[in-house]
């Protein structure tokens, strides 16, 4: 069979709901898209460790400390599981763990915008668990129906753990929201700081050619805007119920259009943060990653070669 026929057959299969395994034949385009998507997902989980990890030593009581330690460990574990999937996909190109993580310190793979931002206060640490993990669940749950079976299986576990994280975050936020004036001020400030990053998290409004291809291959089944609307529908009422003000006076539900109207984030500014690693904490966190990757090369070398 020529490659065009193979490709057509493949597309027909995935569009009728078939699942692809790592050992199945797949078009190069499909493989590339998967590598790009899951590699980014994996390193985002790993980079998501740093903003919260800073708050483990500062957690205000023993219960919170243990919960946060477990949560951050989960994120690292997700990174590991996802890397394993990318390793299988990238094996034909001779890329393994070392190279995939080198890409991160060399700026060759991007990670989610929110992990370029600073976690300035304990409220930020709580809000990351509540809203960012909440946004991530919406995103990841939509991928559960992905055509690539190994990814779907891992996502199932990830989603289950993320929902604990979301509850942990919500619990931290509730304590602050019911607290003193100072605490409430800290919380409002946190929402102001993260709001537009959260909107950007779901990606641009337009359906880019890459996104179009992912929909075509059933790697994804929902658009960015559909997911963002889901997030707004779920979280805006919850945010309001805590008496917080969302820093967007135009935000409202348009019942005619059946969608949330919102002020858009400054797309170019946020895009630059991601594509050029120019967020407030991008370089500092990549430097932390470099400690693991470069300063400890001797350990990995010793363990694999005995020298």
């Amino acid at each position: 069979m020529d490659s065009q026929r193979l490709e057509e057959e493949f597309v027909k299969r995935v569009q009728s709901g078939a699942k692809i395994e790592a050992s199945d034949w797949m078009p190069d385009g499909y493989r590339h898209l998967l590598i790009k998507l899951i590699h980014m997902h994996a390193v985002s989980e790993i980079m998501g460790v740093y903003p919260e990890k800073e708050w483990v030593p500062k957690a205000p009581n023993l219960r919170r400390k243990l919960a946060l330690m477990a949560k951050v460990q989960d994120e690292m574990g997700h990174g590991q599981l996802l890397l394993r999937i990318v390793e299988d996909l990238a094996a034909p190109y001779g890329k393994g763990r070392e190279e995939l993580l080198d890409d991160l310190v060399e700026g060759k793979v991007k990670f989610h915008n929110v992990f370029h931002m600073e976690a300035r206060t304990w409220a930020d640490a709580g809000l990351i668990g509540w809203l960012i993990d909440g946004a991530a669940i919406i995103n990841q749950a939509s991928l559960l129906s992905t055509s690539y079976a190994p990814y779907a299986r891992i996502l199932k576990r990830i989603c289950a753990e993320e929902s604990f994280h979301m509850q942990h975050g919500e619990n931290v936020i509730l304590s602050i929201a019911m607290g003193t004036d100072e605490q409430r001020k800290m919380l409002q400030d946190s929402l102001d700081y993260w709001w537009y990053s959260l909107l950007f998290f779901f990606g641009p409004l337009e359906i880019t050619p890459a996104a179009q291809k992912m929909l075509h291959y059933r790697i994804r089944t929902k658009t960015n805007e559909e997911l963002r609307q889901k997030f707004l529908a779920k979280y805006v009422p919850r945010i309001w119920s805590l008496g917080l003000t969302i820093p967007d006076p135009t935000l409202h539900y348009d019942s005619k259009l059946e969608r949330w109207h919102y002020a858009e984030p400054e797309w170019e500014v946020f895009q630059k943060i991601v594509s050029e690693n120019k967020g407030p904490k991008s370089q500092e966190r990549i430097a932390l990653r470099r400690i693991a990757q470069d300063q400890h090369k001797w350990v990995r070398l010793a363990m694999t070669t005995g020298i």
Partner: peptide, 8 residues
Amino acid sequence: LGLCPTVE
């Protein structure tokens, strides 16, 4: 956390 020689 995040600084160990391997993710594992």
